[in-house]
Amino acid sequence: MGFIKLLGSLLILFSTTWMGFYHGSRYSSRLKNLVYMEQCFKMLETEIVYGATPLPEALHNIHRKGNRKISFIFRDIREHLMEHGRGDIFYSFSSIIKPLKDDLHFTAEDIELFLSLGRVIGSSSRRDQEKNFQLILNQIGFLQEDAKDERDKHERLFKNLGILTGLAIIIILL
């Protein structure tokens, strides 16, 4: 009997701890992904401003060179663009809102910034594009700081909360 109780308690503890860690890790993964995103944006800027590479090709290059964790979104945008060919790039950018949110743990603010790139990219001269990129990179810096704060605040909290909730449940049940 005691053995089953112990097993049950451990099971509860494991699952709540896992939940706590999972929830907490969303914050650090958001931060990481924002950093990768910044790198990809910088690469994209170089392709556009210095290389004057046509956008579909530039997106392809970022997919190849960028960090694997997030570079798939550039492939998806390109594919969407080529497939639909509506002459509207913002439409293709907004087609990947779901993976941004679910897979990369981006917040509404992050996604808004990402979409704001979709509104301006490709649609003006190189000098203009450079300015837009600067603005967006600047903002992504703020978002990273925000993500860092959030992580420091919440990651520990959720992890501890997971363990403690598990312990609390076990005590109540025992």
């Binding site: 556009i48 004057a52 590479t53 579909p56 002459g87 490709g122 003006s124």
Partner: peptide, 17 residues
């Protein structure tokens, strides 16, 4: 006109400055 222009410039107006 805007959409056509995007298609003509391959979504890359900067490349056709």
């Amino acid at each position: 006109i805007d959409e056509t222009f995007q298609l003509i410039s391959n979504y890359s107006i900067y490349a056709f400055e």
